[in-house]
Simulated assay, not measured.
Amino acid sequence: MVTIADCRRVQTGWFLLQARALGGEVWTDGPLTWIDGPDGQNLMFPREMTTAAVVRGVERARDRGRPIVGAWLDPAVDPAPLAEAGFERGWAPWWMTADLSRPIGRPAPGVELQEDTADYRETDPTYRELLALTRLRPARAWYAAAYTRSRRFAGRAWSFLDGDLAGIFDMEVWEPFRRRGFGTGLLHAVCEAARAAGARHAVLNATPEGERLYSACGFTRVGDDITWWLHLSD
């Protein structure tokens, strides 16, 4: 049975992989684990905190020029030190899981796995750097892109192998291309890649909008957490 603790472990593992493979930093400060990578600087699921320790992490983010600092939290943990350091309560990860013993989603024309891309050249040039994760060996991460018949870039998704769990991340279909089967096609592609590498279950955190798609593809909700955010540029 997949638990919320498993979901937290996979989320943390995904941030760790990005930081370690792409030149980020990981450090601990007592019970706090901070990860600074392509997704910014994040505090990952502390069991307890002090305001002083949180402030030290914020100062490190400020020194590194990070505009936003995130904190991922079990709702049972006292968030007062975050509030005292200026963080504001954010969105709630809705953890969902699915059994990979049967296919998730369905194949879709125009969805393909890639190890490099030129799709972000104009809109987000640094995103291409993330695809270095797909070239690690043994393979631990997979990226899928969706295209229309005219090769318009329609969406993307990632999966990441952590033990026998596959984390699904950064899945999105751009607004003009929704309800054409790309979402289920992307989900199928990255889940199948992870399943072939040994994953037995998939986990993800859903938004209210995404939950409808994931539920239709066999995912069930196992619990919620909460995020907190500090905008240093404000």
Results as ranks from 00 to 15, higher is better:
residue 2 V to P: 12
residue 179 R to V: 09
residue 175 E to A: 13
residue 70 G to S: 14
residue 202 A to F: 05
residue 203 V to C: 14
residue 110 G to C: 13
residue 197 A to R: 11
residue 224 D to Y: 08
residue 5 A to W: 06
residue 166 A to E: 06
residue 91 W to P: 09
residue 160 F to D: 11
residue 25 E to D: 14
residue 192 E to R: 14
residue 126 T to Q: 13
residue 171 M to G: 02
residue 42 N to Q: 13
residue 12 T to C: 10
residue 189 A to V: 06
residue 142 W to S: 00
residue 34 W to V: 05
residue 224 D to K: 09
residue 122 E to C: 02
residue 180 R to E: 15
residue 90 G to W: 03
residue 6 D to Y: 07
residue 158 W to K: 05
residue 68 I to W: 08
residue 126 T to W: 11
residue 62 R to V: 10
residue 189 A to T: 04
residue 31 P to N: 07
residue 147 Y to N: 10
residue 184 T to F: 01
residue 132 A to S: 11
residue 85 A to K: 01
residue 46 P to Q: 03
residue 55 V to S: 04
residue 181 G to D: 07
residue 79 P to D: 04
residue 71 A to W: 00
residue 207 T to Q: 13
residue 149 R to C: 03
residue 214 Y to M: 04
residue 199 A to W: 03
residue 111 V to D: 00
residue 83 A to T: 15
residue 131 L to W: 06
residue 195 R to M: 01
residue 199 A to M: 10
residue 79 P to A: 07
residue 136 L to Q: 15
residue 17 L to R: 15
residue 218 G to V: 05
residue 226 I to H: 04
residue 193 A to G: 02
residue 94 W to V: 15
residue 72 W to V: 01
residue 47 R to Y: 01
residue 118 A to N: 13
residue 189 A to G: 09
residue 11 Q to D: 15
residue 43 L to I: 05
residue 191 C to I: 07
residue 85 A to R: 01
residue 227 T to I: 08
residue 22 L to Y: 08
residue 154 A to R: 02
residue 185 G to T: 06
residue 163 G to F: 00
residue 208 P to T: 04
residue 145 A to D: 04
residue 180 R to M: 13
residue 80 A to N: 05
residue 150 S to W: 05
residue 70 G to N: 09
residue 178 R to L: 04
residue 101 S to L: 04
residue 220 T to V: 15
residue 181 G to T: 04
residue 229 W to H: 14
residue 152 R to A: 14
residue 227 T to N: 11
residue 99 D to S: 08
residue 10 V to L: 08
residue 70 G to D: 06
residue 39 D to Y: 14
residue 39 D to Q: 15
residue 43 L to E: 03
residue 121 R to L: 14
residue 175 E to H: 10
residue 32 L to M: 05
residue 132 A to M: 04
residue 48 E to T: 15
residue 115 E to K: 12
residue 231 H to S: 12
residue 168 I to W: 01
residue 93 P to F: 00
residue 30 G to A: 08
residue 196 A to P: 02
residue 91 W to G: 10
residue 34 W to F: 15
residue 27 W to Y: 14
residue 188 H to D: 09
residue 99 D to Y: 02
residue 20 R to I: 09
residue 212 R to Y: 08
residue 171 M to I: 04
residue 9 R to Y: 06
residue 62 R to E: 14
residue 29 D to M: 02
residue 200 R to K: 13
residue 115 E to Y: 05
residue 4 I to A: 12
residue 112 E to C: 10
residue 77 V to C: 00
residue 78 D to H: 00
residue 186 L to F: 12
residue 207 T to L: 11
residue 233 S to R: 14
residue 30 G to C: 07
residue 107 P to F: 06
residue 81 P to V: 00
residue 123 T to D: 12
residue 13 G to F: 08
residue 155 G to Q: 06
residue 202 A to E: 09
residue 16 L to A: 12
residue 168 I to C: 08
residue 119 D to W: 11
residue 172 E to K: 06
residue 24 G to M: 07
residue 136 L to S: 01
